[in-house]
Structure formats: C-alpha cells, structure tokens
C-alpha cells in the first residue's frame, strides 16, 4: 500500500497538533504567562529595572528556554495517552514525519510565545529596542535548536516513568551550546550604546550548524523511538 508523501504526513500531524492546541489552549497561554512571571522574578532576583548587554540577553534567552521546556514536556503526551504512537506505527508513514511535525509545532509555539514575550521584554527592561531587530535571527535559530532537540528528547521522556524529570534533565545540558552562542551574540547586540556586530555571523553560523546537526540526528534515529 502506498502511503502519503512525508510532506503530506507532516502537514497532517502538524495540522492535528495546531488544531488541538487552538481548541484546548494547553501550551501557548501557559508559556506566555510563565514568561511574564519569570521576567518579574528576574526583576527582583537581579534587583534591576533596566537591563542591557549580557544581562539583558541572559534574561530573555533563559526565559524563552524555560517556557520552551513547558511545551516540550507536553509535546508527546497526547500521542502516548491517546494512542498516537500506535496509530502512526500502523499507518504507512515514516516515523520521521512525526519528528518533523513535532519540531515544526514547537517552532510555531515558540514564535507565538516570542510575539508576546519579546515586546514585553522591551517594555519592561530596555531603553531602546534597536538591538532587538538583529536579535531576531539569533532567536529564530535558537528556536530551531529548541525545536529539534525538544522533538528528539521529548518522546524519550514521555515514554519513561519520570517524564517531567527526564526531559529537562537531558535537555538543559544538551542546550548549553546554542544558549552559549545566542547569549554571546546577544550580549553585543543589546548593549546600551547600540548593537555591535562583532562575530555576529560566526554566532549565527554556530547556531545554524547546531540546528542542522540535530535535525539530521533526529531524522536518522527517530524511527527507533517509535518501536516497541
């Protein structure tokens, strides 16, 4: 039997996820609320009302990272509890389609989160938003890293006996390199005196390389996570 193309399978699964999210609002509102609360905690934790440079980047990126963990934790719960893993294994569909669809779903969630979280960050902490524009490619590539590693590690965590623990435990060290790269780029971009583009391209390159490598790894090994 000929199955659908990988592209069509990805579109089907992604469409299902977005439809369910739109209907149940399980992830995105929680991420938005969570990020705003983290800003408030940073404001008092750091005892600063204005941020710039490395501190500003750190607050923004760590907030995105933590909010992403919320979505990653929930990413495969419906597949496990409502039989999605089995359904996809019975269908003439490549397991890779599930990986790609979930990574894309995470990308969509993160983009929507950032449509709120970045303006709020500007409003709360920054004098001028000029550094935020060149920061966008950095954040988008960081989203890529969060999406690929998240879609790879989340099913492992979901199928373990300690989902909430295993996911963040593995993901946090795994995400150190892209966080390092994005922070290093951002520290220069968000300087109070205006963005400095020193090594900007190298950092984007490093982030892109990380995204590409984890995309390939996910592509290569994801089928093994679906078997039983």
């Amino acid at each position: 039997m000929n199955g659908p193309s990988t592209f069509s399978a990805v579109a089907t699964i992604l469409g299902k996820d977005l439809r369910v999210e739109l209907r149940t609002l399980q992830s995105i509102p929680a991420m938005v609320l969570f990020s705003t609360t983290i800003y408030v905690i940073f404001r008092f934790g750091l005892d600063r009302t204005q941020l710039d440079g490395g501190l500003a980047t750190g607050v923004l990126l760590v907030t995105i990272l933590f909010a992403a963990l919320l979505a990653i934790n929930r990413l495969f719960v419906a597949e496990r509890e409502q039989g999605g893993f089995e359904a996809i294994r019975l269908a003439p569909v490549d397991g890779t389609a599930l990986f790609l669809a979930k990574a894309l779903a995470l990308l969509v969630y993160l983009t929507i989160l950032e449509l709120f979280a970045i303006p709020v960050f500007w409003l709360f902490f920054l004098d001028s938003g000029t550094g935020l524009l060149p920061m966008l490619p950095v954040v988008l590539l960081l989203n890529g890293a969060l999406a690929t590693t998240g879609a790879l590690i989340s099913p492992i965590a979901t199928n373990s006996t300690a989902r909430d623990l295993i996911g963040p435990l593995i993901l946090l060290p795994l995400l150190v390199p892209p966080m390092v790269a994005a922070s290093a780029a951002g520290a220069k971009l968000l300087l109070a005196g205006g963005p400095d583009y020193d090594k900007y391209a190298s950092w984007l390159g490093a982030l892109g390389l990380y995204d590409a490598i984890f995309l390939l790894i996910g592509w290569a090994v994801f089928d093994f996570l679906l078997e039983d």
Partner: peptide, 16 residues
C-alpha cells in the same frame, strides 16, 4: 504498515 486493521482496548482516537 497500512495493511492491518487493529482494534485494541485503546481506541487510538484523539479526545480533543
């Protein structure tokens, strides 16, 4: 894949 019709205890349907 795609040739079996499986009906188990879990309906394999999304609640939402």
């Amino acid at each position: 894949r795609g040739r079996l019709g499986y009906l188990g205890h879990s309906p394999l349907l999304y609640r939402d």
